[in-house]
Design a protein around this nucleic acid. Structure first.
Length: 730
RNA sequence: GCGCGGUUAGCUCAGUUGGUAGAGCGUCCCCUUGACGUGGGGAAGGCCAGGGGUUCGAAUCCCUUAUCGCGCACCA
């Protein structure tokens, strides 16, 4: 036996996360072990080891991390540390997202508040400088927070959705899609955000239930059919009334045309028959406004009707006399309702609740407007993908099981979304983001990775939907379009861990891009976590003032405690509640581990752990069997991504079995006279403590690394790269 | 309208392939025991939302009702 010095004086005091965590994180960073190449160089990982890769869902550079990010980092760090300890070639690739619209509107608000200026006062170039400065600052804050959480990401490979390499990937992807005819420019009724002054995609709409009025009226005294609408102000742009072809009430009018003057605006209305009209709704007749309703636009296309735009980008009326012209839609509505009353055309006014479309970022009510925009065609057969459409490419891996979603009930949600998917509008009228790689000169259009040669070309003013670049994330971060060795080694990535709230925005788009551009899935498994809510189950929000800052919790209880509280009892796909009591309980647990170690070290003083020790007593053999059965179980659970179960079992074992039972009875054994039993028990305790420390490391990396440094174990590496015990054989 | 999820101890939630119900916090009682009072020992507390079915056996599988929440669609 080796004689060890007395136990470290650190152990004589309670565990102190504050004086430990930053020091340990630096130690890891200096070791280089977050980088799989270093692990191979130093002989920790075999060069032909199975790769395990995961990209960090890049946090938006709009500010700071919240508890949702914290829980994401915990789950992913557990996966990554576990993989690394299993000897896999493990890469966790970090980065941040420029989050175009979110970041731009945040900076716009800041500038307006602090300087009273709007972005046009500054100009594109100056404004972008401001946004970049803000983004840089957010980035630095985020990086610091990610480190505080203990995340073992490979900082040497850090990426940003708007940096040079990712921009090249974006332009390359765009050009290929353009050349394949998947990206096209089209005039369509799109979702216009009057506040953000940009188009947004269908997915960026949030439906809000609001009380509203349904008005029933006629365009004029002699008009034969009454119609119902919640938006009378758009009716100055009507070109038709659509009825169901079999509606007996109206059948005789089909094909007739009428001229009316509606609130001072001349309109020409044709009565048409269309299957999409429901006889039961309202009067069973629908006023068709092709410019300001997507459904009406579809009807207009079918019947070859003209499109008359009557509302502009600022949600103001563009027709009529001074009573209407230039009025906001809400004001114009009142004007028209008043006019209808005065003319005795208004027949009914009903209170209804309706789903109002609002913009996710700005909260503005969406104004459908006809616009020339860029779209991705999801229904066009692609020649070099076996004639499949993007929709089919997105669906395929989920249907055939090559890509699995945890929990699997989200399969259905995903499939349902794809089935309803329409062309994706990818152009945005904002400045911050990837400029569309298309140039114009007169009638000529050029799409390329670089600007065209020659004078006079003007680049498209618009930028791309931020999710276009996020969609490339699994491979743009690995060097694509170059065939780098990282790309070859780590793609498809092993798993994507993210919130279920962005399954459409992000997960689906990554599958689309990877399937199309690479011809392969972006990841084998998707693990979806839920929302972290406050103790009452409410969503955390600034307006409610119920936001818990993870950094405050770290300050109070330590990162390990926060991590345990975020993982235990949190199954995939389910929302969880943040509870300070729970964090406190795990702070106590960290201290408990500390004290267990103190007991073991002080009562086995001078003894070094001997992994080959074989003279265990019968009693200790039984304890080993029981313990190793636990390790077998939790290893299985970890492999199945059931960290919430494994973590809890380790906690239970360490506290109620090791501390409460085994250590209690060890007191008699270790102070007794049976030397064989003493030696056996001492080795058992050291062995068990070392294995508990190893297996708890993915969950509580700081306290375990610190304890590991104090354990009398020969030839040890940092715990972060120590091999995971595989059940009873190790 | 279509779909999904929840409903388990006072509170927050676990419960892996169906086999006598678990944890944290809280509550009550006891203990300055030589790792730890950020502790230890003990206790109370549950017709697992209701009903029906399958089964030797159901919190777990099926049907149904209620209720809360979510997603999608509609939104004239």
């Amino acid at each position: 036996m080796y004689k060890e010095p007395n136990i470290d004086p650190k152990l004589l005091k309670p565990y102190d996360p504050k004086s430990t965590e930053d020091r340990i994180y630096s130690l890891w960073q200096e070791s280089g072990f977050f980088n799989p190449d270093v692990c191979i160089e130093k002989g920790i990982t075999s060069p032909d080891a199975e790769p395990f890769s995961i990209v960090l869902p890049p946090p938006n550079v709009t500010g700071t991390l919240h508890t949702g990010h914290a829980s994401m980092l915990v789950i992913e760090d557990i996966m990554v540390r576990f993989a690394r300890m299993q000897g896999k070639r493990t890469l966790w690739l970090p980065g941040t997202d420029h989050a175009a619209i979110a970041t731009q509107s945040k900076v716009e608000k800041l500038i307006e508040k602090e300087e009273g200026k709007r972005k046009n006062d500054l100009g594109r170039e100056e404004f972008l400088k401001r946004v970049e400065a803000f983004a840089q600052e957010s980035h630095d804050t985020i990086v610091n927070q990610v480190k505080k959480m203990g995340a073992s990401v490979d900082w040497s490979r850090e990426a940003f959705t708007l940096d040079e390499k990712r921009s090249l990937a974006v332009r390359t992807a765009f050009k290929k899609m353009y050349d394949d005819g998947l990206i096209y420019r089209g005039h369509r009724v799109v979702n216009w955000d009057p506040k953000g002054q940009t188009v947004i995609s269908d997915d960026e709409i949030v439906y809000e239930e609001r009380k509203s009025k349904l008005y029933t009226f006629k365009y004029g005294k002699d008009f034969p059919i009454s119609i119902s609408t919640t938006r009378p102000e758009t009716k100055v742009g009507d070109v038709a009334v659509a009825v169901h072809p079999t509606d007996e009430r109206y059948v005789e009018f089909i094909g007739r045309e009428y001229d009316e003057v509606f609130c001072g605006v001349p309109i020409h209305i044709k009565i048409i028959a269309d299957e999409s009209v429901e006889k039961e709704f309202g009067t069973g007749a629908l006023g068709v406004t092709p410019a300001h309703s997507q459904i009406d636009a579809d009807i207009a296309t079918r019947h070859n009707l003209p499109t008359i735009q009557v509302i502009n980008e600022f949600a103001k009326i563009t027709v009529g006399e001074e009573n209407l012209l230039g009025k906001k839609t809400t004001e114009a509505r009142e004007v028209i309702v008043e006019w209808l009353r005065a003319e005795e055309l208004l027949e009914k006014e009903e209170d209804i609740t309706q789903n109002v479309s609002t913009a996710e970022r700005t909260g503005a009510v969406i104004e459908p407007l006809p616009k020339l925009q860029w779209f991705i065609n999801v229904n066009k057969p692609i020649a070099d993908r076996g004639g499949k459409t993007l929709k089919e490419l997105m669906l395929e891996p989920v249907l055939n099981g090559s890509l699995s979603i945890i929990p699997d009930r989200f399969d259905k949600v995903y499939r349902h979304w794809i089935e309803n998917l329409r062309d994706w509008c990818i152009s945005r009228q904002i400045w911050y983001g990837h400029r569309i790689p298309v140039w114009y000169m007169g009638e000529e259009i050029y799409c390329g990775i670089e600007a065209p040669e020659g004078e006079g070309w003007i680049q498209d003013e618009d930028t791309l939907d931020t999710w276009f670049s996020s969609g490339l994330w699994t491979f743009s971060t690995l060097g694509w379009p170059e065939e780098t060795s990282d790309f070859k080694t780590y793609h498809p990535t092993t798993i994507l861990e993210t919130g279920y709230d962005i399954i459409f925005f992000w997960v689906a788009r990554m599958i689309l891009m990877s399937q199309y551009l690479i011809g392969d899935i972006p990841f084998k498994t998707v693990y979806l976590h839920g929302l972290v809510r406050d103790a009452q189950g409410r969503k955390m929000s600034k307006s409610l003032g119920n936001i818990i800052d993870p950094l405050d919790m770290i300050e109070k209880y330590g990162t390990d405690a926060l991590r345990m509280s975020l993982i235990i009892g949190t199954g995939p796909g389910n929302d969880s509640k943040m509870s300070e009591d729970k964090i406190k309980a795990y702070k106590n647990f960290a201290n408990k581990l500390w004290n267990i170690t103190r007991f073991i070290l002080s009562s086995t003083e001078g003894i070094t752990h001997n992994p080959e020790f074989s003279s265990y007593t019968g009693a200790d053999k039984a304890l080993i069997a029981e313990r190793d059965e636990l390790f077998t179980t939790i290893t299985k659970e970890m492999n199945e991504y059931k960290f919430y179960l494994a973590g809890e079992k380790l906690y239970q074992y360490a506290w109620t079995q090791l501390a409460d039972v085994i250590i209690e009875e060890s007191k008699t054994i270790l102070t007794g006279t049976d030397e064989k039993a003493k030696e056996s028990r001492a080795q058992f305790l050291l062995d068990t403590m070392s294995k508990i420390t190893i297996t708890l490391h993915p969950f509580m990396p700081f306290v375990t690394e610190e304890l590991w440094s104090l354990l009398p174990i020969r030839d040890k590496q940092l715990l972060i790269v120590t091999k995971w015990p595989h059940g009873s054989t190790l």
